[in-house]
Design a protein around this nucleic acid. Structure first.
Length: 777
DNA sequence: CAGTGAGCGAGCTTCCGCTTGACTT
C-alpha cells in the first residue's frame, strides 16, 4: 500500500519520524547492522584481496525477511541510517541484502529529528557513499584480523578462551600500567602548616581567619623550628588582593560524560547508566544516548532559553554552541538532552528520574550565564620568619549556571585546603592578627588514583579508542574475561604526627588515618597482567596507545577516496601475520613466573606463577628427572597477587595444611582450599569463618567449630520417612528442601515442610521442581 | 547455590560496532 519505505536504525526513531512524514511513508528500522562477517570462520578471504564474507546474523533474519517484504511493495526505499561510517555501511548492507534497485533507492541523512530537517532530507537525497562504506569495511576487517589472529596465540601461549583485540587489550593495558605505578609509588611526607588567626575588626567584633603556609617542610625538625619562631612573632596583614574570576558551565552530555557524571553523582555503573538511559530514550524522554556530539539543535536552544528565562530571568541565559573536542568523533547525533526541555521532571522509576534530572540540569546549565566570582587573597607577614601565611576566600557575585548544576571531579579527597571557599572578614592592610593555633600536620603524597569504570571510559575516549556504543560492552568484556576486577578494598592504617603551637607551647601528637581504601575501582588480575605483558612484548604495534588513532587516519583517507581499503589492510596484514607466526614458533608458554628467592630452611627455590586453576606458589624446581623430588605447590590466597607477594608470604603458604592435634582420636588439620580456609577432621570439612585466621587458629577453636557444625547438621534433618530412607526433608542454607537420591527439589512457598507427607514429597519430585546444578561458566 | 579441598582427556574458545529484546528468582 505504502509508496515509500523509510529505514532507520532504531525503532524509537522510526516512531518519531513517521509522525512527521504522513501517510505516504512507512517508517521502519533495521535494528543496527543486519549483516556481519561470518562468525565461525575467519570470514575474510585473505587470498582474494581480503574479500569479506558477510552473513545475515541469526537475530536479524526475521527483520531482514520483513524488510524484504516491505521493500518489494514499496515504490521507493529511503535509506535513512546515520551519516557516519557505520551508518553508511548499514545503508549499503541493506541495499545489497534486500536487493534494492538503484532507481528505487535513495540515501538520506539528517542531523536532528525535526519535521523541517526530515522534509529537507527528503528533498535532498544522494547516493550511497562507496568510499565511506569502504572505510567501514576496512575498520571491520582490521578488527577481525587483530582479534582472531591474536586470541588463538593466547590460547596456545597463555590459557584457552582468552581474548585480545584493538580496544579491549589497550583498556587492560591502561589498568595494568596504573596498578604498577601504584605498586612502585614511594610515598613521602611533608609538614603542612595551617593557622587560625583572630582579627579585631573596626566595629569591635572579632573574627576568625584561617590561613596556610604555601611552603611545606620536609622534616619534623624544620616544622618545629618554624613553630618555634612563631612563638614570638607578630602577624601583620601585608597585602589584600581581590581578583575577579569566572566559571563556565560544562557542555551538554555525550555518552562518555554522562557515564562519568552518573558514576560520580549517582554511583551508577557504566552499564547501569546505559540501561536506564535506554529506557528514557524508548519512552521518548531523552534524545539518543549513544553519541559523541555536544551539539544541540536550534529548537533545543530556543526551548532552553525560554525555560531559563521563565525560571530565573533572562540575565541567566547565555546561548552557547559547543564544539566536540574528542578524537575520532563522528557526530551522527545530537548531544544527550531531554526531548522536551520544558519538562523539568518525568514519571518513571527512581533511577530514571534521577538520571533525567541530571540530564535536564546539565542541558539547562550549558545554556546559562557564567558564574562571576571574586577571589580574595590575604598575605600575612611573620615578623620572625621569611615565610608568609596566605588566606584565600571566594565569593560568588553572580551564580549564573551554578544555580542549577555543578560538574563533579574525580579527584575529590577530603584533605583539600581548608580555606578554599571561605568568606573572609573585612580586613585591611596593616591589621594585626593574633595566632590562636598553628598546626604543622604531616601529609603524605598521594598515589595515582585507580580507574573507575567511568574514568577508564574517559581515558579511552581521550585516546580515541572505542565508540559510544562500545564503551559499556568493553568495560564488561575485560571483566568477564577476568583481566580486570571491580571491587572495594580496605585501606591500611597509617600514623602521622601533628605539631601544635598553642598558648606559647608546642606539643606533638600522633594520629592515625586510613589510607588507600578503594570503592568500586578497577584492579588488574594476575592473568590480566600476564596477558598484557605477553602482548606488549610480542605485539607492540597493536598495543600502542596510538594504534587506533593511526589507523583512524587511514580510514579517513579511505573515506575521502585517497586510499584503497584492501591495500591498506594488505600493508598491515603481512608484517602482522609474520609476527604471529614467529611468536607461535619462538615464544615459550607464558606463566608469569616470578622467582622470589630461596627457602632459608631447605635452600629450595620459591617462585610464583599462574597454574591451571589460578595463581600458585611453588617450592623447589620442576625437573624432568623422575627420581628427583617433586616441587610442592600451594594456591595463593585471594588477596595475594603474583606481582606483589613477598618471599615470606609465599613461605607461609606452605605451612598449610597444618596439624592442630587430635580430637576423638582423629587428626584435626587446617588448610586453605579452593573455597577458602577449612578444618578437616575425620574426613569432614568445616569452613572457617572470615573472622578466623587459618594461620593462627588453635585446636580448641577448631573443636568448637566442628561441634557447631555437628549441631547444625542435627538440625538439618526436618523429616525422614519409613517408606524410603533415601528421601529426606532437609534444612539447607536457602531454606528447606527435599533431598532424594543425590538430587534436590524445591518446596513451594507457603508449604510447611514439617507437614509434608511421603506422598506429597513424591509428587513434588514428580513435578520436577529440581534445583539447578551449578552451571559451568 | 544444595557441599567441593585438584593437577596434561577432547572440543571449544576470539574481534568491534550498529541495535533491541529474551531470559529467571
Amino acid at each position: 500500500m505504502q509508496e515509500n519505505l523509510v529505514i532507520v536504525e532504531s525503532p524509537a526513531k522510526a516512531k518519531t519520524i513517521e509522525k512527521f512524514l504522513g501517510k505516504d511513508f512507512l517508517v521502519t528500522s533495521s535494528m543496527g547492522h543486519i549483516r556481519d562477517l561470518e562468525k565461525k570462520d575467519f570470514g575474510i578471504d585473505i587470498e582474494n584481496n581480503y574479500l569479506p564474507k558477510y552473513v545475515v546474523s541469526d537475530d536479524k533474519k526475521k527483520i531482514v525477511a520483513e524488510l524484504k517484504k516491505l521493500a518489494k511493495k514499496a515504490t521507493m526505499v529511503w535509506l535513512a541510517s546515520d551519516e557516519d561510517r557505520e551508518g553508511e555501511a548499514i545503508a549499503w548492507h541493506l541495499k545489497e541484502e534486500l536487493g534494492l534497485k538503484a532507481d528505487k533507492t535513495k540515501r538520506i541523512v539528517f542531523h536532528e529529528i525535526t519535521k523541517d530537517a526530515i522534509l529537507n532530507a527528503i528533498q535532498n537525497p544522494r547516493n550511497i557513499d562507496e568510499n565511506l562504506v569502504n572505510a567501514q569495511q576496512a575498520r571491520r576487517v582490521l578488527d577481525r584480523i587483530v582479534g582472531f589472529e591474536l586470541s588463538p596465540v593466547l590460547w596456545k601461549k597463555v590459557k584457552p578462551s582468552l581474548s585480545a583485540g584493538r580496544v579491549q587489550s589497550v583498556a587492560v593495558r591502561l589498568i595494568v600500567e596504573r596498578e604498577r605505578e601504584i605498586i612502585n609509588f614511594k610515598s613521602s611526607s611533608s609538614f603542612r602548616v595551617t593557622a587560625n588567626f583572630q582579627a579585631h575588626l573596626s566595629d569591635g567584633q572579632t573574627a576568625e581567619v584561617k590561613a596556610e603556609l604555601p611552603r611545606r617542610f620536609d622534616t619534623r625538625q624544620e616544622a618545629e623550628a618554624f613553630l618555634e619562631k612563631c612563638k614570638t612573632a607578630r602577624f601583620t596583614i601585608a597585602d589584600i588582593t581581590r581578583k575577579p574570576a569566572r566559571r563556565t558551565p560544562a557542555p551538554p552530555f555525550t555518552t562518555s560524560t554522562l557515564q562519568q557524571e552518573a558514576s560520580r553523582k549517582l554511583g551508577f555503573s557504566v552499564a547501569q547508566t546505559m540501561s536506564v538511559a535506554q529506557r528514557l530514550y524508548e519512552g521518548g524522554k531523552i534524545t539518543y544516548m549513544r553519541t559523541d556530539s555536544v551539539n544541540l539543535s536550534g529548537l533545543a536552544l530556543n526551548t532552553a532559553s525560554q525555560k531559563i528565562t521563565e525560571l530565573h530571568g533572562d540575565k541567566y541565559v547565555q546561548i552557547r554552541q559547543y564544539k566536540t573536542k574528542s578524537k575520532g568523533a563522528q557526530e551522527a547525533h545530537e548531544a544527550i538532552r531531554p526531548t522536551y526541555i520544558d519538562h523539568e521532571t518525568i514519571s518513571g522509576s527512581a533511577q530514571e528520574k534521577r538520571l533525567y534530572d541530571l540530564i535536564w540540569k546539565r542541558t539547562i546549565a550549558s545554556q546559562m550565564a557564567d558564574a562571576v566570582l571574586e577571589k580574595t587573597t590575604i598575605t600575612i607577614d611573620i615578623s620572625t620568619a621569611e615565610e608568609k601565611f596566605i588566606a584565600s576566600g571566594e565569593v560568588i557575585i553572580f551564580d549564573g549556571f551554578l544555580k542549577v548544576y555543578m560538574e563533579s571531579s574525580d579527584e575529590e579527597n577530603g584533605n583539600g585546603s581548608p580555606n578554599s571557599s571561605d568568606l573572609l572578614p573585612p580586613l585591611k592592610a596593616n591589621d594585626q592578627l593574633k595566632a590562636r593555633q598553628i598546626l604543622a600536620t604531616e601529609r603524605f603524597t598521594q598515589k595515582p588514583p585507580r580507574y573507575t569504570e567511568a574514568s577508564l571510559v574517559k581515558r579511552l575516549e581521550e585516546l580515541g579508542i572505542g565508540r559510544p556504543s562500545t564503551y559499556a560492552p568493553t568495560i564488561s568484556t575485560i571483566q568477564t574475561r577476568n583481566y580486570v576486577i571491580r571491587e572495594d578494598r580496605p585501606g591500611t592504617e597509617r600514623q602521622f604526627s601533628v605539631l601544635e603551637l598553642k598558648n606559647n607551647t608546642i606539643s606533638e601528637t600522633t594520629k592515625t588515618e586510613i589510607t588507600g581504601a578503594e570503592k568500586s575501582k578497577l584492579f588488574p588480575t594476575d592473568i590480566g597482567m600476564v596477558v598484557n605483558d605477553f602482548l606488549i612484548e610480542n605485539f607492540e604495534q597493536v598495543m600502542d596507545y596510538n594504534f587506533t588513532a593511526n589507523v583512524e587516519k587511514e580510514f579517513d583517507d579511505i573515506a575521502e577516496g585517497k586510499r584503497v581499503w584492501n591495500e591498506m589492510i594488505d600493508r598491515f596484514y603481512h608484517p602482522f601475520r609474520q609476527t604471529i607466526e614467529s611468536t607461535l614458533k619462538n615464544s615459550e608458554k607464558t606463566k608469569g613466573e616470578r622467582i622470589l628467592g630461596s627457602d632459608p630452611k631447605t635452600g629450595k627455590q620459591v617462585s610464583v606463577k599462574i597454574g591451571r586453576f589460578g595463581p600458585i606458589a611453588q617450592l623447589g624446581e620442576s625437573t624432568v628427572d623422575e627420581d628427583q623430588e617433586k616441587p610442592q605447590f600451594a594456591s595463593l590466597r585471594p588477596s595475594q597477587h603474583l606481582e606483589t607477594i613477598t618471599l615470606e608470604e609465599a613461605l607461609e603458604l606452605f605451612k598449610m595444611p597444618r596439624e592442630l592435634g587430635d580430637y576423638e582420636n582423629k587428626k584435626v588439620t587446617v588448610g586453605v582450599g579452593r573455597f577458602g580456609p577449612y578444618i578437616r577432621h575425620n574426613n569432614q570439612f568445616v569452613s572457617l569463618p572470615k573472622t578466623d585466621d587459618p594461620y593462627s587458629v588453635g585446636l580448641e577453636r577448631a573443636i568448637e567449630l566442628i561441634e557447631a557444625k555437628r549441631e547444625k547438621e542435627r538440625n538439618a534433618v526436618i523429616k525422614t520417612f519409613a517408606e524410603d530412607a533415601d528421601l529426606r526433608v532437609l534444612n539447607g542454607r536457602w531454606g528447606p528442601y527435599i533431598a532424594y537420591k543425590k538430587s534436590n527439589f524445591r518446596i513451594p512457598k507457603g508449604t510447611q515442610p514439617e507437614t509434608l507427607t511421603y506422598e506429597a514429597c513424591l509428587k513434588l519430585i514428580e513435578e520436577g521442581g529440581k534445583t539447578q546444578k551449578r552451571q559451568k561458566k
